[in-house]
């Protein structure tokens, strides 16, 4: 009984160790290449599709496995200055998301990630970038008219072209996406841009000021004209009122017809009084009545009893 248990235990250990030598697993995130005496014979791009079982191989040194991480990698080549279709320099910084898709080709051509990036991706990206950007005008990157901006199209072109180029190279690499993460201009051009921005602002300052001034004048003029018009209308009404007053007054003029000469005299006196009401300097010769009294005593006798 006791020996039996021990035997089973030992057998288990031996079997496990044996399985270790002849089996291997490939995770969902990996791909794998099996070489027999150094010669690649099989590749797996993931775990078994249908059953949750490990893969089997002949033990080392007959067969050997090489695993590669097949998850997405980001590669950012150096910033490059390139030229648009119109010859304008433009500085783009691209990034590429790629993955190892076919371990066999990858193993045969580059073997390591670093090699892949240095040998294949860098030059292919540069070519693609120059080709695609060289086909487009700067005005298709950024334009006053949003309808003419083809930035997304340019990125899509780059993706298609780079995908094709990498597939042609048979390196076992797949491009997931490519994009422009910085879009810049050269130092010299940046100065020009600043100049233009400044000019644009100055122009705007003038426009705003002029517009404000115009608006201001418009409002004020309008107000003045409304005011003038209202006052004029009021004056017109006032004239009517005055006219009515004058008409009322005219009724009494008939009464003056009793003695027109006296009426005229009274009116003249009143006018004189009104005219000389204020700010008057009066110069009179003393030979006029009643100032003749200043000259001397009048020649009066008690003939009449009349007080002035």
């Amino acid at each position: 009984m006791k020996n039996f248990a021990i035997t089973i235990f030992i057998v288990l250990i031996v079997v496990t160790l044996g399985l270790y030598l002849v089996s291997f697993q490939v995770r969902e995130t990996e791909c794998c290449l099996v070489t027999r005496f150094g010669k690649p014979i099989r590749q797996m791009t993931g775990p078994r599709e249908r059953y949750a079982l490990p893969y089997f191989k002949w033990p080392f040194p007959i067969e050997q496995i090489h695993k590669f991480d097949s998850r997405m990698r980001v590669f950012t080549p150096e910033v490059e200055e390139t030229r648009t279709a119109g010859g304008e320099p433009i500085i783009v910084n691209t990034y590429v998301v790629w993955r190892i898709s076919e371990p066999l080709k990858f193993f045969n051509s580059v073997k390591t990630v670093k090699n892949a990036e240095d040998e294949l991706l860098r030059s292919r990206i540069r070519n693609t970038q120059n080709n695609v950007i060289g086909r487009h005008y700067f005005s298709e990157f950024v334009n006053s008219d949003p309808a003419k901006i083809k930035f997304e199209d340019i990125q899509r072109d780059m993706l298609t072209e780079l995908k094709a180029a990498v597939a042609d190279a048979q390196y076992g690499i797949e491009i997931e996406t490519v994009g422009i993460k910085q879009l810049k201009v050269s130092e010299e051009v940046s100065k020009e841009v600043f100049e233009r921005m400044r000019a644009e602002r100055n122009r705007r300052v003038e426009a705003i000021t002029a517009q404000g001034e115009a608006e201001k004048i418009k409002i004020e003029t309008q107000a003045n004209s409304i005011s003038d018009e209202l006052i004029a209308a009021a004056e017109a009404r006032a004239k009517v009122i005055r006219g009515k007053g004058d008409a009322q007054a005219a009724k009494y003029y008939k009464m003056l017809e009793a003695d027109p000469a006296l009426a005229a005299f009274l009116r003249d006196l009143e006018a004189l009084q009104k005219m000389l009401e204020k700010r008057t300097t009066f110069v009179v010769p003393t030979d006029k009545e009643p100032f003749s009294l200043l000259k001397g005593m009048p020649n009066l006798g008690p003939v009449e009893q009349n007080k002035p």
Binding site: T280, T281, V284
Partner: peptide
């Protein structure tokens, strides 16, 4: 009412 008066 006159402010200044001169008699000659």
């Amino acid at each position: 009412n006159a402010d200044e008066k001169f008699f000659i």
